[in-house]
Simulated assay, not measured.
Amino acid sequence: MTFLGIETVEWLGYIAMATVLVSFLMKSIIKLRLVNALGCLLFVAYGIYLQPISKPIILTNIAILVINLYYIFKKK
């Protein structure tokens, strides 16, 4: 499926990329980690949606997601 001549999987990758980039504009570290975690989830979906699937994209972003979640829920 395409939109504006770009495949759906590519759109997912662009949205994931934009989400991660926007996360670095956040002043609050918690907001940064939340938005970055969303970007990581989108990248995981992107890695799965690619054919063949991209294990490096999936594994890297799962690791970053776990790190973000650790710091979000870490007790102070």
Results as ranks from 00 to 15, higher is better:
Cys40Tyr: 06
Ile57Pro: 08
Ala63Leu: 09
Ser28Arg: 11
Trp11Cys: 01
Asn36Glu: 01
Val20Asp: 05
Glu7Gly: 02
Ile6Asn: 06
Ala18Tyr: 08
Lys76Thr: 11
Val20Met: 10
Ser54Phe: 11
Asn68Ala: 04
Leu34Phe: 01
Phe73Glu: 10
Tyr14Thr: 04
Pro52Asp: 03
Tyr46Pro: 02
Lys75Glu: 11
Lys75Phe: 03
Ile53Lys: 11
Leu59Gly: 12
Ala45Ile: 15
Ser23Gly: 07
Lys74Arg: 14
Gly47His: 02
Ile29Leu: 15
Glu7Arg: 03
Val66Trp: 09
Trp11Lys: 01
Lys55Phe: 15
Met17His: 09
Val35Ala: 00
Ala18Val: 09
Leu41Trp: 12
Lys31His: 13
Ile58Asp: 04
Leu41Cys: 15
Leu41Glu: 11
Glu10Asp: 08
Leu59Val: 14
Met26Asn: 03
Phe43Gly: 02
Lys55Tyr: 15
Val22Ser: 01
Lys76Trp: 04
Val35Glu: 01
Ser54Lys: 12
Thr2Glu: 13
Lys31Ile: 13
Lys27Pro: 09
Tyr71His: 13
Gly47Glu: 00
Leu4Ile: 09
Ile67Trp: 10
Thr2Gln: 14
Asn61Gln: 07
Ile64Leu: 15
Ile58Ser: 05
Ile64Asn: 13
Tyr14Asn: 02
Ile72Tyr: 03
Ile48Leu: 13
Lys55Pro: 12
Thr2Arg: 11
Gly5Asn: 04
Tyr71Ala: 07
Val35Pro: 01
Gln51Thr: 15
Leu4Ser: 12
Lys31Tyr: 11
Tyr70Val: 13
Leu34Ala: 04
Leu21Gln: 09
Ser28Thr: 06
Leu65Met: 14
Ile62Gln: 05
Leu42Ala: 09
Leu65Lys: 12
Leu42Tyr: 01
Ile57Gly: 02
Ile58Pro: 07
Ile64Arg: 12
Lys75Trp: 07
Ile64Thr: 13
Val22Met: 09
Ser23Thr: 05
Leu32Tyr: 04
Lys55Leu: 15
Lys27Glu: 13
Ile6Val: 11
Pro52Phe: 06
Ile48Ala: 13
Val44Phe: 07
Ser28Gln: 10
Ser23Phe: 00
Leu69Trp: 06
Val66Pro: 10
Glu10Ala: 09
Leu38Ala: 15
Ile30Ala: 12
Ala63Glu: 02
Leu12Gly: 04
Phe43Asn: 06
Val66Asp: 03
Leu25Ser: 15
Leu25Arg: 10
Gly13Asp: 00
Ser23Val: 03
Ile30Arg: 15
Val22Ala: 12
Ala37Asn: 08
Met26Phe: 08
Gly39Lys: 08
Phe24Val: 03
Phe3Ala: 00
Val66Ser: 11
Ile29Thr: 15
Asn68Glu: 01
Tyr46Gly: 04
Asn61Cys: 05
Ser54Gly: 08
Gly13Gln: 03
Met26Thr: 04
Leu12Phe: 01
Val9Lys: 02
Thr8Asp: 02
Phe43Glu: 03
Lys55Ser: 14
Asn36Thr: 03
Pro56Ala: 04
Leu21Gly: 07
Ala16Gly: 04
Ile64Glu: 06
Val44His: 08
Tyr14Gln: 05
Ile53Ala: 14
Thr8Arg: 00
Lys76Gly: 10
Val22Arg: 02
Ser23Asp: 09
Tyr49Arg: 12
Leu59Met: 10
Leu42Thr: 01
Ala16Phe: 00
Ile30Pro: 02
Leu38Val: 14
Leu59Lys: 00
Ile57Asn: 12
Leu25Asn: 11
Leu32Met: 12
Leu38Lys: 11
Ser28Ala: 07
Phe73Arg: 12
Thr2Ala: 13
Lys27Ala: 14
Val44Thr: 05
Val22Tyr: 12
Tyr71Val: 09
